[in-house]
Amino acid sequence: MQLAVNIVVLAAIYALISCGYVLIYRVSRVLNLAHGELMLVGAYLLYSTASLLGGNPLTAVAMAAVLGLLVGVLVYVLLMRRMTGEMVLAAVLCTIALGVMLRGATVLIWSAQVRHPMEALGWSNPSLVLFGDARISLISAILIGATAVVYAALFGFLGFTRWGIRMRAAGQNPLLASQRGIQLHGVYALAWGLSTFTAGLAGMLISLDSSLDGTMTMIGLKAFPAALVGGLDSLAGALIGSAIIAIAEVLLIQFVNPLLSDVVPFFVLLAVLVIRPWGLFGSKEELDRV
């Protein structure tokens, strides 16, 4: 029973992280390798607002979330906007450089010390006993809920709202979309904002559940195979991919060798890609050249 709970929690973590990769890739075909760093920034923002507004934890969380969104929009406006139309690889490298910069900047601002946003908020993280004597920490439960809400909202947004449809259009054919009067820059900025928002949310929840330090960036990278297994431009794929990777990882830890848990997601990924080169749910694309 505990095993199932562990799988669901890990899958929710990966899903919440990987939807950010998917959003940006789907809209602008750019792979954002600074995603882990943006998670880190989101978590540190929460730490800062929590320290500032000690008495109002909810306000602090809301403010951090809004700031996260803002950071994403800023990243696009100041940086990625200029990379539109350049080589895809150059744009990807630009996100890597952004990541290096953010990593330095977080040490500069918050130092490398391990932080505990939970304490700053003044909350506690009790563990809930579920059926079958399985346990889950409150924050993990919230994380699962948040992932569900985020995915439901994103599906609704992309499927039914005006901006969501614009976003999909821009992703499908930017030229045609802009000729039909869609503000490409606005759409891209929104995608970056949303993606950073979800990244920040993931960062906050993970850091609330354990603690906050520089290794968060590597967690962002660990969710990467999940996004790819499902197909980089499919939200449903990210969800399923996260589930597959989480199942593989938890079962390996439990029954085989925990040391393999770093390597096996990539084995799964290779296996899937060899059978379906565009991921399970991804759409076939024309990305022939570098």
Binding site: I13, I219, P258
Partner: peptide, 20 residues
Amino acid sequence: KEQIPPPTPDYTPYASKLKG
């Protein structure tokens, strides 16, 4: 005996094996 890789999003799977 648990050997836990450094970047770990969730320690629970390792802990539950240990507790087992």
